[in-house]
Amino acid sequence: MQRTIDSLERIIALGEKLLTTFDIEGLLTQIVSNVKDLLRADGATLYLVDPIEKLMISQVILSDRVEEIVLKVGNDSIAGYTALNRRSLNIPDAYGDLSQYHPALKFNREIDEKFHTHTQSILTHPLELRGELIGVFQVVNKKGGAFDDDDLRILRNFAVIAGIAILNARLVERVVEEQSNANDIIEHIAEKVIIHDLEGRILSLNHRATEDLPAGMSARDAKGKKVMEIFPMLAGLEGEVKKVIEHNLDKTFSGGKMPYVILTAKNARQAIEKVILIIKEPVNNQPPGPPPATPEDPA
């Protein structure tokens, strides 16, 4: 029991680090290394499940080497059985008779032959979060004996932190990718795009918008300055932007003499954080009057 308590304290400490690591490859390596250390094992594997292809792809640490193993989700392998049935296994002798678990279950000796190792004991546990199967932990050869119930409890507790960390890293990776794609689109569209904060300070400009900057000013120089100071020809839109912010709208637009779209970027609390101005035609040097706008309430 004391070992379980001590391990929980260590898992909490490790969790703080894992939950702030958003690089997927680095995170998986940390997770496998931590499992190996926590359970005092010779080796550990984290198989990530591909639900479409019904495959499991591993991050492995064996003799300080990282290798990849691909398995099918099914009853003919130890990790595959754990994934398919979502059940932990504690096998004291990998080369023994495994038919008590399933008639088709067997240990793949090719892995031992490839890495010049001998697998004796194996402990597995499914990595689940909110009913979603993320992967399978497989830990081999506990130093000084066989795996016990304490080891399984430790692995189960660590799996919760690991699952949250992996999903967080995947989410951040997806957001970064979507943001990158959006930035590419903004940069290359023909319209002028100006992104500013709630105080009207410029955060970024696309290539078309930089063409209308004052002589000698770069996009970097413009950042942090007020939009209307740098683009006085847009003064007619200042009132429209203010309305959008005050009413927490998603967007407003006009097809008048100076067609424009005003979009907003909101946080998780649905509060506006940024305003995106899209000017659909080149702006002349005369400040336009406030054009008729068509607001759109948040969905």
Score class of each variant (00 low, 15 high):
265 A>S: 13
186 I>F: 15
236 G>Q: 06
195 I>T: 11
21 T>H: 12
72 K>Y: 04
63 S>Y: 09
282 P>A: 05
242 K>L: 10
285 N>R: 10
256 G>Y: 04
237 L>H: 03
254 S>C: 10
235 A>T: 07
93 D>L: 14
162 A>W: 00
254 S>H: 01
63 S>P: 01
195 I>C: 04
51 P>W: 13
78 I>G: 00
83 A>M: 10
77 S>E: 01
60 V>Y: 05
261 V>D: 00
109 R>C: 00
176 V>Y: 14
160 V>R: 13
143 K>M: 15
36 K>Y: 05
95 Y>T: 08
239 G>H: 03
173 E>M: 15
199 E>H: 10
53 E>N: 14
240 E>L: 13
173 E>G: 07
63 S>C: 08
212 D>W: 04
34 N>I: 06
179 Q>G: 15
186 I>P: 09
273 E>F: 06
219 A>T: 11
55 L>N: 10
187 E>I: 04
250 D>E: 13
5 I>V: 12
34 N>D: 14
146 A>G: 06
43 G>D: 07
244 V>R: 00
163 G>Y: 09
90 N>C: 11
253 F>P: 03
260 Y>F: 12
136 V>H: 03
132 E>T: 09
32 V>T: 15
295 P>E: 05
159 A>C: 09
220 R>T: 08
168 N>K: 15
25 E>Q: 15
276 I>N: 07
277 L>A: 06
297 D>Q: 11
274 K>I: 02
246 E>Y: 11
186 I>G: 09
163 G>V: 11
251 K>Y: 11
177 E>N: 14
281 E>V: 09
264 T>F: 14
75 N>C: 08
294 T>Q: 07
248 N>W: 05
59 Q>H: 14
283 V>P: 01
110 E>F: 00
296 E>Q: 11
52 I>D: 14
91 I>M: 12
127 L>A: 05
103 P>D: 08
240 E>N: 08
228 M>G: 03
11 I>F: 06
246 E>S: 11
5 I>N: 11
221 D>L: 12
8 L>I: 07
159 A>K: 06
61 I>A: 08
12 I>Y: 12
119 T>V: 15
